[in-house]
Amino acid sequence: MCGVLRERSPVSDRYEFIDSVRFDDTAEYAFPVTFMCERVGVSKSGYYEWRNRPKSATAERRDRLMLLIRKAFDDSEGTYGHRRVHAQLQRWDVQAGPELVRLLMRRMDLEPCQPRPARECLTEPDEDARIPDLVGRDFTAPAPGMKLVGDVTYIPTSEGWLYLATVIDCCTREVIGYAMDDHYRTPLVIQALKNAQRNGKVSAGAVFHSDRGSNYTSREFGCFLSEQGIRRSVGRTGICYDNALSESFFGVLKNERVNRVVYPTRERARRYITRYIEHWYNHRRLHSALGYNTPAEIYAAHQEMRLAA
């Protein structure tokens, strides 16, 4: 797979962990150095030898680290926590343990934006629709284009709601198709899937999974899927876990973009959301479920493997 990162020697990481816990004034518990060294598998003498290096060298290293941490944080528009910042530093081949990154971010008052505990629901249940659940909460796939999930969310603007329908690939976590309009009726979700097909990222016989909303269970949408040779799958009404991958993306979108910007018009919101998906989420945002690679990198790796086979 692409984007595989080289691992550094874990000894320095362990020393940095001990140092960060020992000198972190906000830590709830304080442990003796001997106890911590035993638990992480390093010698006490080795720790003190590492700790007693010239302060100037340590200070210079941390100054350089803080500059790079600030760049990674700012490049993410303030959305990265210490784990993603640490992953970005690794991609830059910068040696730093995750605990040191966490400590320095705290000292620099770098706090990522946090999701709001809000719930939304656009689902108009169609309990009479007899459609199976072909996914069963398994949001993985061996290759791109085989298993897709979709949903609709709303974005507030001064002109009224802008509705966003998405199609996400379970293998790469990439938003492979989307559509926006001032309604969330069936033509909107069909257009999102057509856009995914236009991008060449829907395989023959693919499964498309959604919630049990009336737009996804409609006869019009069912006929479209049948014509395209796509198998329809839906979860249960009101059970968000049955479409958790779509819910997760919308949570990230709201946290990192929608809740931080006031959109005066639908067109302005449309441009911002398009930019977020195309330039940030699909190509630059490090995804924890992908080993801190981007969706575009995972897709490229699968394409390389397919061509080499």
Rank of each mutant, 00 (worst) to 15 (best):
R257T: 05
S246T: 08
K254G: 02
D242L: 11
P264D: 10
E256V: 04
E247C: 06
S248I: 02
V262E: 12
V258I: 14
Y263F: 15
F249Q: 09
R257G: 01
T265K: 06
V261E: 12
Y272A: 14
S248R: 08
N259T: 03
V262A: 13
K254S: 00
E267W: 08
R271G: 09
V262D: 11
A269G: 06
V262R: 14
L253T: 09
F250K: 07
N243Y: 04
A269W: 03
R270H: 13
S246F: 00
P264W: 11
A244Q: 02
Y263L: 07
S246V: 01
T274H: 15
E267S: 14
Y272Q: 14
S246C: 12
V261F: 08
V261A: 10
V261Y: 08
A269K: 00
A244D: 00
V261S: 09
N243P: 03
N255H: 00
L245H: 05
L253G: 05
N243I: 04
F250N: 01
Y272T: 15
V252T: 15
L253D: 06
S246G: 15
R270T: 15
N243K: 09
D242S: 12
R270A: 13
P264E: 11
R270Y: 06
E247F: 01
N255S: 14
V252C: 09
E247T: 07
Y272P: 03
G251S: 09
R266M: 10
K254W: 04
R270N: 10
N255Q: 12
A269L: 04
S246H: 01
P264H: 10
A244T: 05
N259Y: 02
L245V: 10
A244F: 01
F249P: 05
P264K: 11
R271I: 12
L253R: 05
K254T: 04
R270V: 06
E247K: 08
V262Q: 13
D242I: 14
V252I: 15
F250G: 05
E256F: 02
A269T: 04
Y263R: 11
A244Y: 04
E247P: 05
R271Y: 08
F249D: 06
F250L: 05
